[in-house]
Write a protein that binds this DNA or RNA. Structure first.
Lengths: 338, 338
DNA sequence: GTGAAAGCGCTAACAC
DNA sequence: GTGTTAGCGCTTTCAC
């Protein structure tokens, strides 16, 4: 049968309080008593029951992370770095996968916030802030990751999206490209909106013709880039900006298959949000906007623990900066935001 | 403040027992009473507390998955498919990442088995069965995934490793290759051992010279393939078998960078354990051993829930079969085990 | 068809 | 320096 704290107490000849306190270092216990307790624990093979403890203390030492697509290496890498930070601080990570589906996100948020985790990281696929907000119990610690809402009610950690895109368009324009296409992610996401608006503004500022057909939206999941690319090629683009790593990889491959050569036949700017083998192969033939994925994960971990430990802490918005790597200078990296 | 079951009971004018039973459909409740209960729940915004429930019932509805490397797409894809199966059955998945480190695996197993999860899936990085076994509380539901031990104490789900390698060597030999090198994963893992032993046996059966230097071991993590490849190239291999997807991608890229062309300068056989863009690019220039990753995940989910629901169920070993795709016939797929 | 109440294993306030 | 004990929110047995 299960061995409980009172079995230990009995065998050690002390009270349950003493056992609890020795285990948790939560008040002074003489070293002889400690000794007896530890001996009893060892003898019985006692392990404190995590459920009972969570129930009693209200702390579960678990953080939930709601992710749009765990098989996307961008998120997988981020998860790894979140997990690293959390486990170093005595927390476990629970993953839920929404596959960019709002209903799945709703279900998972409800499940996790109902006493399963102490706090929640969310890379939300929702468009509507109200709908998201309604799911979160009052005062529940939440940190938005990578994707935010206009209403600044929750803390967030994300990457600056405007500047690198704006800069890309300007660089392409200076090179002589006129018809610059862009492949964005899901139109409802903040990250996509920011990037597209940067594109629009830069196109206008560079006096390049705007044309709705030059803007294509994918879903950032497998096999979505190809259709976008086809439509852009039909319109005779001389340059393409791809706003997300997985779609960028697919774009590169598809161009390769069509025999269209990077930087000779077409200019490419890619978001690089993970260590892709494709990226390694073609890094010297395109501009790269390199996302600080690890830092994003670590910052997310920091922020959520901060909120869990002090739910009254003020809202905090952290914006990280991508690195910009122009293709012509393989060795040179520069920060896009300064 | 937190709204509890007795708040609901009070407002609905019934007992807590009735509220509990209506929520859980666990005994007959008249429809008028149900009605009152649901109204009260809605009015108060009541959500049952998962901790309290787990504590009381001993069931947490959480499965743990201990994974060697979550940023490896092989595991990320498997996680996704496990998660899919579990969530369809009312369970959540908790991930722990060991980075192929035995100490981290120990810590995580101990943490998770201490009342945090109902059952555990483990792709263990351990060599020593005793050491692993010692971590698992008696009777705790465990399913080994992808990597097993000689001692058949736990249920397992894995992929047949022997046949595809044996077949690869024979095919290469028939083609005229004499110096066939192989890049394996961590030498301590069952999967690696099986693959290397298949290689050895096939080399002997094909009357090819065995040479220890033709066998190289990587760690299946990023940047480990390059060193292995260098050593194999030094020995003048005319063919190389790579036993793991990530290392296979890296091998392909490295060969490409060196200007060594697949199937012209060197023959390649790759394990393909996820949807890689590199694989898409080079699929027609090499033999592929395609791992049934999704099925592996689903089977793992099935097995662990079976054990959780009936811990006395007999040990079950499921062995899935890879598909073998020879490079010469892009359209033809064949099962390697029949 | 419903209610009363015990108790899951632990922590922590209070007592000495 | 240590013990006693209430009670966290829920499920479930027993009773009517």
């Amino acid at each position: 049968m299960k061995v409980t704290i009172s079995d230990v107490a009995k065998l050690a000849g002390v009270s349950t309080a003493t056992v609890s306190h020795t285990i948790n270092n939560t008040r002074y216990v003489s070293s002889e008593t400690k000794e007896k307790v530890y001996r009893a624990i060892a003898e019985l093979g006692y392990t404190p029951d995590a459920s009972a403890r969570s129930f009693r203390t209200g702390k579960k030492k678990i953080i939930g992370f709601i992710v749009p697509d765990i098989a996307n290496k961008f998120f997988a890498t981020m998860i790894e770095s979140v997990e690293k930070y959390l486990s170093a601080n005595g927390y476990q990570l629970i993953i839920a996968n929404t596959r960019e589906n709002m209903e799945r996100e709703e279900t998972n948020v409800r499940l996790l916030t109902a006493g399963m985790v102490d706090g929640l990281l969310v890379a939300s696929t929702m468009e509507d802030f109200q709908r998201f907000d309604a799911l979160i119990p009052t005062g529940f610690p939440v940190v938005l990751v990578d994707r935010i809402f206009d209403t600044k009610k929750f803390s967030s950690v994300c990457v600056s999206n405007f500047q690198p895109i704006y800069r890309s368009v300007c660089r392409l324009a200076a090179k002589g490209d006129r018809r610059i296409g862009i492949i964005g992610g899901l139109p409802r996401l903040s990250s996509t909106k920011e990037r597209i608006s940067a594109y629009r503004q830069a196109m206008a500022d560079c006096a390049l013709p705007e044309e709705e057909g030059l803007i294509q939206y994918g879903d950032s999941m497998e096999k979505s880039a190809q259709g976008c690319l086809d439509r852009l090629l039909e319109r005779g683009c001389d340059a393409i900006i791809v706003c997300q790593g997985l779609m960028a990889s697919e774009t590169i491959i598809y161009l390769h298959q069509k025999g269209i050569q990077l930087s000779r036949d077409i200019d490419l700017v890619s978001f690089v949000d993970y260590d892709s083998e494709v990226y390694t192969l073609y890094a010297d033939q395109m501009d790269s906007i390199i996302q600080p994925v690890e830092e994003l994960g670590q910052a997310a971990g920091e922020q959520i623990l901060k909120r869990v430990e002090d739910p009254e802490a003020p809202i905090f918005e952290k914006v990280l900066t991508s690195a910009y790597k122009p293709y012509s200078q393989p060795g040179s990296w520069s920060h896009s935001d300064r």
